[in-house]
Write a protein that binds this DNA or RNA. Structure first.
Length: 507
RNA sequence: GGUCAGUUCGUCUAGGGGUUAGGACACAAGGUUUUCAUCCUUGCAACAGGGGUUCGAUUCCCCUACUGACUGCCA
């Protein structure tokens, strides 16, 4: 059996779209499952839309995600193969010439303006068998005229010459058999005059053949042009070794319909790109998952399930589990709306699974940006105590900042509801209880404080929340005695004193 | 406009000729807690419509509607 080789082939026209990440992921899973290879090829045949830095961005994104390639632009090889299409120009030219010589393609001299004019005046105009003999091309012009025009440097394109009225069958691994009549596909441009480079159609077919690609797994926006590619394989004499196609459903906007786009991210407030992107032209900064605090494995898990599922009720999958059970057969045909809330949920799940050590390391970096430091084991204990209420690393700050900073204010609503005239005296008493034991013990202290409250027939919720208020500043958070334990009895006592001095409810 | 494709809870989806149409997210209620969150329990909520085929259709077929992709010297 032919060995499995797949490719992910983005064009460097900007940051890598999250849909592209999913396509790459599915390619990766399929390759790894089958002991195959995955290749990263850069399709930069559009010199107009080229964006500097985009290629590097793509590589860095996969690096962050942990999706590794076997061959590609970023991986040196001793054969001297380049995976950047702009550097493979002469290869494509040979095949374009071959098609010309074998009558499967022709030169066309019609200017963009002339074609635009046709589109305007003729309904459903397309450059195909029905009109090609009325156009300016090497089929209608004499050989000499063609030579003349070319000698004069007149610009031309190379167009494929499609034979009309033939049913082209594509066996898609996901969509099944799709039949399209060749009459509806136009004589697509294979070679552009503008930048003297091939178009996607020619370049991708030539490369997939030369790179021995066994399966083309790509977005379903390519389905309509697949018949053209099939024809190209035939015209080039490669029909027997043509790769198998698998078209993936699109990622849709969360609201309404349509392809997910960069603007949706801005509009709805979630990232559409793996990494933050600094636009080199506008100096605009666009949000990325990494910078927003997502874990790469959580993002991958979320993305894997968007359009595919194993048919079981399992939701959490490691990369290696995904490699194990992924299958193209179980990929859906219909587009999936991007559910940002679920992405957050996955991140929460993954945060709970991370070790306290790993989380503490990340939290430490976060704290460093605020010029805060603390011993590693102290940070670890804090993380352990509060992590279940965090979805992101930065949430840890919201739920544990009081360990690093004394409260600078006290929640008014809690004061109004809980703080009473005799509260200070009881807090003082509780402070004494806590400080009484030479070695603070969480359970023992809790027991004793509760006993005090009961003995004095006080309202548990009122006293406890006032105690919390004085230590934390508000009425939320983990177990109070766990907090005291980490804060230390001395610090806790001081905070109680400060609170008693500062809080004067106006009734 | 043309071509191709898609359509199960709000969202991601499972299922498949006879099911109380299952799970997850979100949402709501209750429980737990000193509090908030987590967590647990419960609830809410779906087969686009119309024709066939069939004893029986959400499932198979056809039509319609809707949605999307494509329709560039972009990928």
């Amino acid at each position: 059996m032919k060995s499995i080789r797949v490719r992910f082939a983005p064009s460097p026209t900007g940051p890598l779209h999250i849909g592209g990440v999913r396509t790459a992921l599915y390619n990766y899973l399929f390759a790894k499952q089958n002991n195959g290879k995955i290749i990263l090829r850069i399709e930069d045949t559009d010199s107009v839309r080229f964006v500097p830095g985009a290629e590097q961005y793509i590589i860095e994104s996969f690096d962050w995600l942990g999706i590794t390639f076997d061959e590609g632009v970023h991986i040196p090889n001793k054969e001297g193969i380049t995976y950047r299409q702009s550097e493979r120009k002469s290869i494509y030219k040979q095949y374009a010439d071959f098609l010309i010589n074998s009558g499967k393609a022709y030169y066309a001299f019609d200017t963009p303006e002339e074609i635009e004019e046709k589109r305007k005046t003729i309904a459903n105009f397309q450059y195909d068998a029905s009109v090609r003999m009325q156009m300016k091309n090497s089929l209608t012009l004499s050989e000499e005229e063609v030579k003349n025009r070319m000698a004069k440097g007149e610009s031309y394109v190379i167009r494929i010459c499609i034979q009309p009225d033939e049913d082209i069958k594509v066996q898609d691994l996901i969509y099944g058999e799709v039949v399209i009549n060749s009459s509806i596909v136009d004589d697509k441009v294979l070679w552009k005059s503008a930048d003297q480079l091939p178009t996607y159609h020619l370049a991708n077919v030539v490369d997939d053949h030369l790179m021995d690609i066994s399966h083309v797994i790509r977005g379903s926006e390519w389905l309509p042009s697949t018949p053209l590619h099939v024809l190209l394989y035939r015209y080039l004499g490669w029909a027997d070794s043509m790769p198998q196609f698998a078209h993936l459903p699109l990622l849709l906007k969360p609201d309404g319909n349509g392809k997910l786009s960069k603007r949706d991210g801005d509009r709805l407030g979630f990232p559409v790109f793996p990494l933050e992107w600094h636009d080199p032209n506008s100096s605009e900064v666009i949000a990325g998952y990494r910078e927003k605090g997502y874990f790469p494995d959580a993002l991958i898990n979320f993305l894997a399930l968007l359009g595919w599922n194993p048919g079981t009720e399992q939701e959490i999958f490691s990369l290696s589990e995904l490699i194990e059970i992924f299958s193209l057969e179980r990929v859906n045909k219909s587009g999936a709306k991007f559910d940002f809330e679920k992405a957050k949920w996955f991140n929460h799940q993954y945060l709970q699974m991370k070790s306290n050590n790993e989380l503490a390391e990340k939290y430490k970096e976060f704290l460093a940006e605020k010029n805060l430091t603390a011993p590693d084991d102290y940070i670890q204990k804090i993380v352990e105590l509060v992590k279940e209420r965090a979805y992101f690393i930065h949430d840890l700050w919201e739920v544990s900042s009081f360990f690093f900073l004394r409260p600078d204010s006290y929640d008014e609503a809690v004061i109004r509801k809980r703080w009473q005239e005799n509260t200070p005296q009881h807090l003082k008493a509780i402070k004494e209880i806590i400080a009484a034991e030479p070695n603070f013990q969480i359970d023992k202290a809790r027991e004793q404080v509760k006993k005090y409250i009961e003995d004095h027939q006080l309202n548990m919720a009122n006293i406890m929340n006032c105690l919390r208020l004085s230590l934390v500043g508000y009425a939320k958070g983990p177990d109070l005695f766990e907090i005291i334990n980490l804060l230390g009895v001395e610090e806790s006592s001081e905070r109680i004193d400060i609170a008693i001095n500062k809080i004067h409810p106006s009734l």
